[in-house]
């Protein structure tokens, strides 16, 4: 049972010509853009750009999900999980299911993933997980769910759709444990 409906429909601001959803500028991009950006991050190991991309995702979604919960008075644990799952799906990132969530631990399943499925569509299977944007989203989600600051959590893709698995499985733990 969903306890809270997500309110996310973008509205076009005619003056600035921007799409605005719940107070944030949003923009439509395709799987080419997401996967090319991901590949760019993969290839720039000198900058540890995989983590750079994941942290950008974490910082942005920490703010967006946090703002949403404050503005719409989403305070319960279950409500926050459901809103975060819905936000992921509504924005086209895929189908995310939180299997369990605790103060120090969690398990998340991606039954579908824009980044992974886009990667396979563009380049075929990957040798290693590619969903850095998804990892960032998941740790941001946990920080928002438990009212903790960014960089509290770390996420690891244990299996990945991009690598040929049916679903992606991501485990979450305290960042200090990794």
């Amino acid at each position: 049972m969903i306890t809270k409906d997500l309110i996310l429909k973008p509205v076009f601001d005619r003056k600035q010509c921007r799409q605005i959803a719940d107070g944030h500028t949003v923009v439509m991009h395709c799987h080419h853009f997401a996967t090319l950006t991901t590949r760019l991050a993969n290839e720039c190991s000198m900058l540890n750009a995989r983590e750079l991309l994941a942290q950008c995702s974490e910082d942005v979604f920490y703010k967006v999900l946090g703002d949403y919960c404050r503005k719409h008075n989403v305070s319960g644990l279950r409500e926050r999980v459901e809103i975060a799952e819905s936000y992921f799906a509504e924005s086209g990132l895929g189908k995310l299911v939180v299997k369990c969530a605790g103060w120090n631990t969690g398990e998340v399943v991606l039954e579908h993933s824009h980044v992974d499925e886009g990667w396979i569509k563009k380049w075929g299977k990957s040798d290693s997980p590619v969903n850095h944007i998804g990892r960032g989203y998941i740790v941001a989600m946990f920080s928002v769910i438990f009212d903790r600051p960014p960089r509290t959590y770390a996420a690891k893709e244990q299996q990945s759709i991009a690598c040929g698995a049916d679903v992606s499985i991501i485990t979450v733990t305290d960042a200090v444990n990794l």
Binding site: T25, V27, C30
Partner: peptide, 8 residues
Amino acid sequence: LLQHLPAT
């Protein structure tokens, strides 16, 4: 495939 993400 499309996504509608925060521009930031």
